[in-house]
Design a protein around this nucleic acid. Sequence first.
DNA 1: AGAATATCGAGAAATAAATCTCGAAACCAG
DNA 2: CTGGTTTCGAGATTTATTTCTCGATATTCT
Lengths: 224, 224
Amino acid sequence: MAIVTAKAGPKLQSVQRLPAYLGILRGMLAEGREFVSTSHLAEVLKLPAIVIRKDLQMTGITGTPRVGFDLRFLVAAIEQFLGWNNTKDVFLVGVRGFGEALLAFDGFGTAGMDVVAGFDRQPELFPGGVRGKPVFPIARLGELARRMHIAIAILTVPDTDAQETADVLVTAGIRAIWDFTTPRLCLPDDVIVQKAGLISELAVLSKRLRERGLTATAEEGNSI
Amino acid sequence: MAIVTAKAGPKLQSVQRLPAYLGILRGMLAEGREFVSTSHLAEVLKLPAIVIRKDLQMTGITGTPRVGFDLRFLVAAIEQFLGWNNTKDVFLVGVRGFGEALLAFDGFGTAGMDVVAGFDRQPELFPGGVRGKPVFPIARLGELARRMHIAIAILTVPDTDAQETADVLVTAGIRAIWDFTTPRLCLPDDVIVQKAGLISELAVLSKRLRERGLTATAEEGNSI
DNA sequence: AGAATATCGAGAAATAAATCTCGAAACCAG
DNA sequence: CTGGTTTCGAGATTTATTTCTCGATATTCT
């Protein structure tokens, strides 16, 4: 049985580092700076310069020796590479718990993403919306997605509803899902599913803690 | 200049997959199942069986041919490997916005983590606490961390306060930080800093979208 | 009891990623 | 105008990770 393992594009880690570069570079641009060298970036980011240079090569931009990169071009190149140059409206499905957390998150703007509406099984529980965003019943998702030309959804429903809701999203025309549920979704190959790694990150953190012997278990007598 | 690149332990990806296994396995255990084979897990998880077998080898557990793994031992082995077998109390610093929502997130329990208190620059804004958790001034963090034997903190303050707050955490005795801010923190080597990768994941998602030509930009006339 | 089959475990091969090395190009100083 | 210095860019090397192959072992069926 040949299970396709969702080939993880080229240089996953490099792509993941780009947003950090972008943040710094945007700041420099705002300060009126015009050029930046990878060696300078390396100091600010505390990363080896060679890593940064290789990462930037990926975006196709080219610098000039002894001068560095033109900041404006560099920022534009990264933004275009990531597709963060034009804003994408997205839906968020499941507004309780972690979904609400994401509605409150204001960091999507820098990534060219705007959460425009929430959806829930019981929208009547949120008559005034959540965090300033309107909440609709999931039944209306297809209609609204078509009308608003929305192709991306953030999935934050309980694990038990994950597959069922994902199916609804796909029939509603959603082409990419940022999935915060734990089960692995079964969807057509042409739908992009990006698993959120919050719990995975916790696993790495826990493991590193254990490796250093910092068990730090909750002990007796630790009442506030 | 030799910048240490925070060596990412052995088999990062394997560690990241373990929580998914654990979720499934716990469910099977609850259903009364006693044994499970990697081939069966592979079907459920839609992953190649060889991947799962190698990942499990990491935990040190051993299965028996033709039978599979003893579910109870397997779950226990993964939990111990990740350090999720005993609950760790943690603090959350910065209770507005995303921090507030994380306080409401109930998914930490499965990872052996319990957020017991919040801290904020202006705790007086939250007299009754937030989401059932008390909120203290950051000045009291050291005292409480000592008394409650707490070594882990979740950092969800605004980016501008990130470094300063992190320094406070370290002097307060915190040894591990799950960092949701964007700047790169400068801390002693013996403090574990785990960057939350929300934005990095968005980068990967955006990149995959762009590769498939799904620009899906916000177009005119998409009012709700 | 003996053959067939499913499954594990360990080492080897293949693949991908990170890092190093060196030649070339641009600025600066004299 | 020439030599020194900084920085880029491309290929090569090293390292890490994933995937494959094969022998061993326990169950099941005849």
